[in-house]
C-alpha cells in the first residue's frame, strides 16, 4: 500500500513570482481513483508537475509526502521502518519515479531516434536500479563508482556491460502482453518514442508506459483530451486495469465528465484558484456537468 499526501502545497513559477498553487491538500491511496477537475488555469496541471518534480516550478510552502508499506516493492526490496515516508520535494524526478510516482503527460515529448522498446526497457531497468540504490544499505557503493571511471576498461566493442535487470527477450514478452491488453498495434514497439504519433496514440502510449512501469501512484494529466470515442474506451480500459491489476492509485486530471463515465472515480475534487475548493464522490462530477464551475465558486466563496 502507498499513499500520496499533499499538504498545504504552495508553488510558483521558478523564474517569476506568479503564484499558482495556494495551499493544496490532497491524499491518494493505492487502488483509489481520484478525479481532479477545475477550470483552465486553476492549477491542476501544475499540481501534477510539482508531484513529479518539474524544474519549472518552485515549491514555497507545504509538503508532498509518499507513504509506503513494507511490501510495496515485493519481496526483493526490504523497506525499513525509517524508509516508509519520503519527502518527494527532496528528490529528483527519476528518484520519485523509482518510488512509484508516474506522471502521464498532457503533451508527451517526442524523442526522435529512440524506439519505444529501447526507451521502455531502459526506463524500467533504470527504475529498478534506482530503487535498489534508494533502499540499499550504506555499503557497496564504491565498487560501482570505480567501474564507471575506468572508461575503456571494458572494450567499446562490447557495448555497455550492464544489460540491466530485465533482458531484451524478457522485456519483449512484457511489452507484447501489455500492448495486447491495450489493443495497440505491435508495430508501435519499433516506432520512435511519440515521434509522429497522433494525439490519441500518444495518450495510449502514456497508459502503456504506466502499465509497464507499474507505479504506486499515477497522475494522469488530461489523458482524455484529443481522444475520439473509440480510443477513449481503449484508454479507459487501460486506466481501469492499473488499480485493478497493479493496485495503482490514480489521480486523474480532467476538464470533462466524459471520461468519468468509463473510469468511475471514488473521489472527485474541484480545484479553483490554486486550492481544492470542494471534494465529493462521483456524483459531484455529474453535478458539475449540470451546473458548471461557477456553481462551486458560488457555493464555496459565495460569489460567482
Amino acid at each position: 500500500m502507498a499513499r500520496l499526501e499533499l499538504s498545504n502545497l504552495h508553488a510558483e513559477v521558478a523564474d517569476g513570482d506568479e503564484k499558482i498553487l495556494e495551499g493544496v491538500d490532497l491524499e491518494v491511496e493505492s487502488g483509489e481513483i481520484h478525479a481532479l477537475m477545475g477550470p483552465n488555469g486553476s492549477g491542476k496541471s501544475t499540481t501534477a508537475k510539482v508531484i513529479a518534480g518539474h524544474p519549472a516550478y518552485e515549491v514555497t510552502e507545504g509538503e508532498v509526502l509518499l507513504h509506503i508499506e513494507d511490501d510495496e516493492f515485493g519481496e526483493d526490496i526490504e523497506i525499513d521502518e525509517d524508509q516508509r515516508t519520503w519527502n518527494l520535494l527532496d528528490l529528483e524526478p527519476n528518484e520519485r519515479a523509482a518510488l512509484g510516482i508516474f506522471l502521464g503527460f498532457q503533451y508527451p515529448a517526442e524523442i526522435e531516434g529512440v524506439t519505444m522498446t529501447n526507451f521502455l526497457r531502459t526506463a524500467l531497468n533504470a527504475k529498478i536500479e534506482e530503487r535498489e540504490e534508494l533502499f540499499e544499505e550504506e555499503d557497496g557503493d564504491s565498487d560501482e563508482d570505480e567501474a564507471e571511471d575506468e572508461g575503456f576498461e571494458s572494450s567499446p566493442m562490447e557495448g555497455p556491460a550492464d544489460e540491466g535487470e530485465i533482458g531484451v527477450a524478457e522485456f519483449q514478452e512484457i511489452l507484447q502482453e501489455k500492448m495486447e491488453q491495450l489493443e495497440m498495434d505491435e508495430r508501435f514497439a519499433q516506432r520512435y518514442l511519440n515521434a509522429g504519433f497522433s494525439g490519441g496514440e500518444k495518450k495510449q502510449n502514456e497508459v502503456l508506459q504506466a502499465a509497464i512501469l507499474e507505479p504506486s501512484i499515477a497522475v494522469l494529466d488530461e489523458i482524455d483530451s484529443g481522444l475520439d470515442i473509440d480510443r477513449l474506451q481503449d484508454v479507459s480500459t487501460g486506466i481501469n486495469a492499473l488499480p485493478d491489476e497493479q493496485g495503482t492509485g490514480i489521480l486523474q486530471i480532467t476538464h470533462y465528465q466524459r471520461i468519468l463515465d468509463y473510469v468511475e472515480p471514488d473521489h472527485v475534487h474541484v480545484m479553483l484558484d490554486g486550492e481544492i475548493a470542494k471534494s465529493g464522490d462521483a456524483s459531484l462530477a455529474e453535478e458539475l456537468e449540470d451546473k458548471g464551475y461557477d456553481w462551486v465558486r458560488e457555493e464555496v466563496y459565495g460569489t460567482a
Binding site: A52, G53, H54, P55, E92, P93, N94, R96, A97, A98, F102, L103, F105, P108, A109, I111, F119, T122, A123, L124, A126, K127, E130, Q209, L213
Partner: peptide
Amino acid sequence: FYLQSRGL
C-alpha cells in the same frame, strides 16, 4: 523531464 519522470 519527460524521460526523467520515467526513471532515467
